[in-house]
């Protein structure tokens, strides 16, 4: 019994490591699915058959499926964007990588810029 427990623990650790160190998302999903299966086996060996049941469905089927769908979706979006970039018709708003952080530091206590750089007051907002 203890040998089986040690073996499954080692397998789970190896599978988990393999998932983390796989770089390609597609391969990672397969790894994650295997990892989920091994986790289910681990729960079974450690006498938690009910947890193993749910882990079997969630870890080995549902989660990989959702990740697969997400990957496929990202790919199709990317392909569409590439397609549009080749024949630029309407400009699309760029989403940069900076995300919600607004970027560089700008202390508000800066000196007044030269007059010619200054923008006219009440810069109109672009219509949405």
């Amino acid at each position: 019994m203890i040998g089986m427990q040690l073996a499954i623990l080692a397998i789970v650790a190896a599978a988990g490591g393999a998932v983390v160190f796989t770089r390609k998302p597609g391969e990672q999903v397969v790894g994650a699915s295997f990892f989920g299966l091994m986790l289910a086996l681990m729960f079974f060996i450690f006498q938690a058959p009910d947890v193993a049941l749910s882990q079997l469905v969630i870890g080995a089927v549902a989660l990989p499926l959702m990740v697969l769908l997400a990957i496929a979706k990202t790919r199709s979006t990317q392909m569409r964007q590439d397609h549009e970039r080749e024949q630029p018709r309407k400009p699309e708003r760029e989403h940069g990588r900076h995300g919600p952080d607004e970027g560089r530091f700008s202390p508000p206590d800066e000196e007044r810029p030269p007059a010619d750089v200054r923008q006219p007051p009440g810069r109109p907002r672009e219509a949405r």
Binding site: D50, L53, S54, V57, V61
Partner: peptide
């Protein structure tokens, strides 16, 4: 027996899948 709403629920949900 081992199982219950959570476990059975996820199994049931795989049927449409």
């Amino acid at each position: 027996t081992p199982g219950g709403g959570f476990q059975g629920g996820v199994i049931l949900a795989t049927a449409p899948l």
